[in-house]
Design a protein around this nucleic acid. Structure first.
Lengths: 273, 273
DNA sequence: CCTTGACTCTCCAGTAGCTGGAGGGTGTAT
DNA sequence: ATACACCCTCCAGCTACTGGAGAGTCAAGG
């Protein structure tokens, strides 16, 4: 019979941990003095403790170990848990490697640029979005106003007012500065709005998007485009849909030259391999 | 200006998380209504939030991010943190891969054996140990008693009494059942015990050991030896010193045939590569 | 028998980054 | 007026411990 300190020395498990395992019911001392509360362990409790350590070392939680040990070590059950663990660790390793790659990319960026980048790119899940939209080919960007006008008029007619940011989807597969196939959208949630004329109401599918936020006038927005496109390429993603340009400033009339404007660009992407 | 829910929708960050970041001072809303306590965020806070998300994604803690952002993004500091992170992740990946290997080994074991093994092997750090010992070549195992006798007599003479388990070190490089070079040891801690005659008092170095605990009579101890030797080979370790056999039963007279005996075998090992 | 020092006990708080819930106030639309 | 969505604060819980306070216990030495 060992007092907790001796048992701790033999097993190389901290006293606190032994007490914690006692509390969890994972490893109860064979005897507890009724008056002093002292815990007494027996040498033949070492196998159980070692089993706990071994399973813990495989990455199982104490709860899982508790279950396994108390069901008398059912091999099938253990196998199931280990298979799940295997998959988890496998994924874990992959994630950590990707993270490592990102850290390295960031380090290279610092080497070349000498300081923090002006932009951050974030991958986000965008949920399905019910929108009212007008799509059309416009000669040049400033003429998008006409599409917005059509959309606004119809929504006003249907007595709908949004408070969510509106955005444009650019359907061209490549960049152009003339004859741009653009679709101006306004989220309508579950409001009773219906398609009519050039205005279509429908649900955009959910996407996984690389996102960048630009702060400033529109004419410097191309910077953000360059940065995010490079990022997508560098980080093993592929563009898989038309990009969205989201106008985060509040207040409707879109002018090109307000330096307080905040615009988000989202490219739907998927991971390569 | 967005209420927290809208800002949450835009940024895809849960409301609770935004409140948490506010609490930490990591991202304060531009305005808080004095009366209702409502938080109001501005679109141009998105870059900061995204920077937080990006750095978090690299695995930095919120505390580290806080420091970085509030020192105006010192590139050198970030570089330092990222280099450290890189090393951490690198090690993490290695550890997880080793763990994966162990899980796979365990799964194979289950496949072949059909159930949980009887033994668990644990790697433990054994600290330096000051011992009194008697070493000698004994014809056969039962004759170890003579060495114990010599040790006990001398320690009794020096008025020393142990409460720690005693053990034997086997110095033969390979297994033999005759003329065994064995050293019987008793830990003496910092007690005032001195070498005298055949009894040597000195400090054993710390070791990293693979350990197995055997429960039962001595004649089945070879099982444990077989299991641990196989384990060492299978798990990429190499034996790098003489093994220790530790007698964990309390009470001195060692008889061979007590089925309640608990014995631990420790092989000093090092990881290959 | 008393003291000293090592050991043990229980209980509480803290770790990181949230998440969930209770209980109550606010804002807008009908 | 009322319904409803939204917001607030505060508290508890997650994992596997770790550290500390304050108090009791044990064995040895004087």
């Amino acid at each position: 019979m060992f007092k907790i300190g001796d048992f701790s020395k033999i097993s190389r498990v901290p006293v606190k941990t032994l007490r914690y395992y006692d509390q969890l019911g994972l490893l109860k001392p064979v005897d507890v003095d009724r008056f002093s509360g002292y815990r007494y362990y027996a040498a033949d409790q070492l196998p159980r403790l070692n089993r706990i350590l071994a399973l813990k070392d495989l990455g199982l939680s104490l709860q899982q170990i508790h279950i396994l040990l108390d069901r008398d070590l059912d091999a099938g059950e253990l196998r199931g848990m280990l298979l799940r663990r295997q998959a988890e660790i496998d994924q874990r390793v992959r994630q950590e490697r990707e993270r490592l790659a990102r850290v390295e990319a960031r380090l290279r960026l610092i080497e070349t640029e000498g300081n923090m980048p002006d932009y951050e790119i974030v991958i986000k899940q965008v949920p399905p979005l019910r929108v009212a939209s007008v799509r059309g080919v416009i000669p040049t960007y400033p003429e998008q106003g006409e599409l917005w006008g059509a959309l606004e008029r119809e929504l006003a007619r249907q007595r709908f007012q949004t408070n969510e940011p509106c955005f444009t989807i650019y359907h061209d597969a490549e960049y152009r500065d003339r004859n741009i196939d653009s679709e101006v959208c306004e989220p309508v949630g579950s409001a009773p709005v219906e398609s009519r004329g050039r205005v279509k109401v429908y649900e955009l599918p959910a996407i996984t998007a690389a996102s960048i936020v630009h702060h400033g006038t529109f004419d410097t927005l191309t910077n953000a485009y360059n940065v995010i496109l490079k990022w997508i390429e560098d980080n093993g993603y592929r563009i898989c849909g038309p990009e969205r340009e989201i106008y985060l400033h509040t207040g409707s009339p879109v002018r090109q030259d307000d330096p307080s404007y905040v615009t988000e660009v989202q490219f739907p992407v998927e991971k390569i391999n």
